[in-house]
Design a protein around this nucleic acid. Sequence first.
RNA 1: GGUGAGGUGGCUGAGUGGCUGAAAGCGCAUGACUCGAAAUCAUGUUUAGAGCUUGCUCUAACGUGGGUUCAAAUCCCACCCUCACCGCCA
Length: 441
Amino acid sequence: MIDPKYLRDEKDLNEIKVRLAQRNYDLDTGLLLSLEEKRKSFQSRTQELQSQRNAFSKQIGQAKRNGEDASAAMAEVAKVGEELDEVKKQQDEVLAEISKIAYTIPNLPDASVPVGKDDSFNVEQRRWGEPRKFDFEVKDHVALGEAIGGLDFDSARKVTGSRFVFMKGDIARLHRALGQFMLDLHTQQQGYTEICVPYLVNSDSLYGTGQLPKFELDLFHTLLTATGDEEGVQRRYSLIPTAEVPLTNLVRGELLQEKDLPIKITALTPCFRSEAGSAGRDTRGLIRMHQFDKVEMVQIVHPEKSWEALESLTANAEEVLQKLGLPYRVVALSTGDMGFSSAKTYDLEVWVPAQNTYREISSCSNCTDFQARRMGARVKLAGGKNVLVHTLNGSGVAVGRCLVAVMENYQNADGSITIPEVLRPYMGGQEKIEVPAKSGK
RNA sequence: GGUGAGGUGGCUGAGUGGCUGAAAGCGCAUGACUCGAAAUCAUGUUUAGAGCUUGCUCUAACGUGGGUUCAAAUCCCACCCUCACCGCCA
């Protein structure tokens, strides 16, 4: 949530309307202003009436204790109570309407973010590595994986549905090696603490990091069939779309001490995304799946330190690709291409030879106080003041897509795949994944 | 899954209908003392909103939501969660 103070006054509203328009969000300032006016008048009246009621109640209490007759005051207060119920009801409606809007407003883009309506306005920051020149025709990871017998999309379609996969043998092991390597890098060399998190979360957590209420349809939900509240409304748990959700929500509702910061945590988890809107894109291969593994890094930092933290977080993710020898570039997302909670995002795009292009493999964001405000995550500063923390998250990196990059960039003419050196310790020293000899002929 | 107990501020913990936004202790902050520190003493120490004479006044919040009442931390209902014991289980 952005600071609700910005939603109160016309000057602020017009200012953030411009900045939100850069993110393709149309802020209805007229509606907010009229709601705000109503809120104020209802609230003043409510408080006035409550104050009257409290005064009467005090009188009544006093009278009763002295054994006097209180019926006159009780008759007065009945009238106050009636109006109070009425005004309170209207006030609650207005408040609900305002907060409904407030929860769907994205974070304000930082001034340094390139302005533009879509990804064509993203600005490349730097490149690392040189895409390899192949002296044979490159195969994509699907062809490589099927020849090796390591990627089985057909069985996944049978067992579950489209956009799932079975990995087998050396490919499954390579996939596992990648995740282990990334986790070890973050924990042993970059100062992150490894966390093993729940893969199902409640809706408060999803509100906290910003997936709800707007992105309901991008998530998989499970129903808790045995429970329901008075109106029969069922609770549910949802599968995490990223470990950012459980990791960041660790500090939800917490008051941290300044000495606890920064908190740097990481987790390797499966991620589940329904992405109902993106059917038809990247239908072939591992690029866009309903389930994929990802190593996620999260930092909870002092509000004045988040911008330097974004740079170091991004560098932490880059190091994964550097150690793997995978060419990539870093792109600053434009205002129109950023995620809901982010004030600034760098994407890491890895070279994918078969597509002859760079594809997103990591996204590193500074969410400033946007998630912290939703979560109620604060820190007590020296001097005793409580302020919202800043939260950051970044993939370090998407394991499935990284597997694609390794397979395609390290492929050989015969369809075998050379295992990058840093992964060999995780594969019992194995150097190559071979195409099995055709049997039965 | 069964039975019982319970959820109060940064923490521990009192409070069973009104004078309790909340005792007491701890912690923390500021000041005094000190060369400095410890100890000691004094003062202060939740958040959000409204108003104005900017320091004060008012309102709300005691797991969450609803209800009873002139008045709810306190009574009632539902839900969530925690602890203990039993059962079941990888």
